[in-house]
Amino acid sequence: MITVKYFATLRSLAGKDEDQFSMGSETTLVNLSHEISKTIPKIGEMILGKKVMVSVNLNVISLDAIIKDGDEIAILPPFSGGI
């Protein structure tokens, strides 16, 4: 299973903290985005439109990155830490 975490405004949009997806032994971020779009179209669009960053196991990745079973994905809206 792939765990997908939603933060800040995206958690409000998703209505939950995280999702679990079964995508076989490996897939791409593009394919995962399409899967997310089935239930939360706006978030899928934001990933594919590069409006948000995505991390795999705490490292930021690009759209063509490979995602493996057991990975932790986080969908990261623009940061606003500091002041």
């Binding site: 933060f7 991390s55 986080a74 990261l76 809206p77 940061f79 606003s80 830490g81």
Partner: peptide, 20 residues
Amino acid sequence: KRTTPIWKRETTSTGEVWVQ
């Protein structure tokens, strides 16, 4: 501010908003 995944939510008289 550029690289660290921290997000700020502001509460105003009109409600709460995530700063982007």
